[in-house]
């Protein structure tokens, strides 16, 4: 179906260093500068938890922990998809002038999103110090938990980037799809607020994000290990999209030059 070609090290080296440079220049002309990398996620999380704890009628610090646990990886996933989707078209300035691996721009954008994730998770843990009463050993699994999120973001992003190159209409569709996926998942709303057997509960049961979210919600909020089914479904889903994304890029890369 697809072949894994020789890894084009110079392209990825370039993409990595470009991402680092972009991080440096991101807030260059602002007064607060580098601090914004922490401030932006901090403000977002605080505001969201205040608003939704009122709606959810949960204790604020309890809800904040619940919310942050899956919201952080979701934001990473959403950011990755949005950035990677436009990576090929956004790479026009280079694609038309010099050889670079067709994966280089997706990788560059994925690295950028990953930097933002690292800032967010740092902020979240800083806030947890105030909000969480007990810390359990389950948190140790989190570095593994983020992997299917990263793979899914990159894979789904790659698929969208190929489609977006040929049909610019794809972007609003994908953004609506992501919004829909978010609001029907148990990131904002704990699934136990719905009656078992009701439509909402059923949606959550078949929703892939439910299982991906469990990888974070269980260790952080429930102090439990994620179930085997959570891992299998999450990694399975992520691998499918990653392979599909790579396949699409390989298949259509010769046309990118003419369509960007």
């Amino acid at each position: 179906m697809f072949t894994i070609q020789n890894i084009d090290t110079p392209s990825f080296r370039f993409a990595w260093h470009l991402a680092k440079s972009q991080l440096k220049t991101k807030y260059r002309y602002t007064a607060l500068g580098y601090a914004w990398n922490f401030l932006e996620p901090a403000l977002f999380l605080v505001i969201l938890s205040l608003v939704f704890s009122v709606i959810n009628r949960m204790n604020i610090s309890d809800y904040a922990v619940f919310l942050f646990s899956a919201l952080i990886p979701w934001r990473y996933f959403e950011k990755t998809v949005n950035l990677v989707m436009e990576s090929i078209v956004g790479g026009e300035w280079l694609i038309k002038k010099m050889y670079v691996s067709p994966y280089a721009f997706a990788f560059n954008r994925w690295v950028t999103a990953s930097f933002e994730f690292l800032f967010s998770i740092t902020v979240a843990f800083a806030l947890f110090i105030f909000l969480k009463e007990e810390w359990t050993i389950h948190l140790i699994i989190l570095p593994l938990s983020i992997i299917p999120w990263a793979m899914l973001g990159l894979g789904f992003g790659l698929c969208c980037s190929v489609l977006y190159t040929f049909f610019r209409d794809v972007k609003p569709f994908v953004q609506m799809l992501l919004t829909l996926a978010f609001f029907t998942s148990p990131i904002l709303f704990n699934s136990n607020i719905f009656e078992p057997g009701s439509l909402q509960a059923q949606i959550m049961e078949f929703h892939p994000v439910t299982y991906l979210a469990s990888l974070f919600q269980k260790p952080i909020y429930e102090a439990a290990w994620p179930a085997a089914s959570d891992w299998i479904i999450s990694f399975g889903f992520a691998l499918i999209f990653l392979m599909l994304g790579i396949h699409l890029v390989n298949k259509y890369k010769s046309k990118f030059y003419f369509y960007v």
């Binding site: 370039f14 220049t25 002038k97």
Partner: peptide
């Protein structure tokens, strides 16, 4: 080294 255009890959802010 392709010089199809001068300054390929240059980032203005850097």
């Amino acid at each position: 080294a392709p010089l199809l255009e001068l300054g390929i890959g240059f980032q203005p802010d850097l």
